[in-house]
Design a protein around this nucleic acid. Sequence first.
DNA 1: TCAAACCCTCACATCGATGTGAATGTCAAG
DNA 2: CTTGACATTCACATCGATGTGAGGGTTTGA
Lengths: 131, 131
Amino acid sequence: MRIGELAERTGTARRLLRYYEEQGLLVAGRSPNGYRDYPEGCVNRVLQIRGLLESGLPTRIIRQILPCINDPRAIHVSDATPETLATLEDERRRMTDRIECLLRSREAISGYLEAVRREQRPAAARHEVTA
Amino acid sequence: MRIGELAERTGTARRLLRYYEEQGLLVAGRSPNGYRDYPEGCVNRVLQIRGLLESGLPTRIIRQILPCINDPRAIHVSDATPETLATLEDERRRMTDRIECLLRSREAISGYLEAVRREQRPAAARHEVTA
DNA sequence: TCAAACCCTCACATCGATGTGAATGTCAAG
DNA sequence: CTTGACATTCACATCGATGTGAGGGTTTGA
């Protein structure tokens, strides 16, 4: 598919798709006319990229992580320098930190929302709200 | 405590502590000489802030969710405009998305690391469980 | 044939988080 | 009294992700 369709299907600006490619997160073939040509799998790949970016990972790290995710078959010790492995372990730990932080905060928000709603319930006719 | 100690104890640049204050994420008292004076609780608060920033939340959002976290007692419907509640719900959903994305990616990394290690110890782990 | 809707590259702009340094004030210890 | 370590404010710089637009080629359909 061409860049426009991929953009639409992933809710991602064309500009960014080209940027991700430039950053080595995405590979696109080329049609004879020079247009980028994406395989179907790119949709999920882009969604992955965006999810990780939204979660605070920089492209440099995503570049290292994506091969583990998208090519579950292409695992060879050869591509894994001990340095890369260390980075992956490190990044896994950081992901765990993020997850825990987000879980805690989400619980707190839920608690707050519940509390507010409990307070809004009891007096059912109390809607003299002056915004 | 003064800014230097807080910086050291949280591993955060002084510059950033001032920035967080400017962004309304942190409140500091002032000593007679004009130095910032932080209460003990700021340590955890700063760690929260940094965790959320690392997880991709902008200060604007952190400013809205911090009160839910740090003042579990100061809950009053009065401060909760329906607009704020909507934002909170929205942000909670986004946090869930992030959590899921991070969980998936972390699992993928773990799977990769395991696979690599199985390959590095061919003799020992011949019939291990394939995660 | 022409216009609209795609695509390309390139480059500069913006925005939020962070770095850095200048110019200055405060305070404890030699 | 001075020096060194801390603090202050202010302002400009950097960096990564993203926006935007210029200048131009390609495809499609009226």
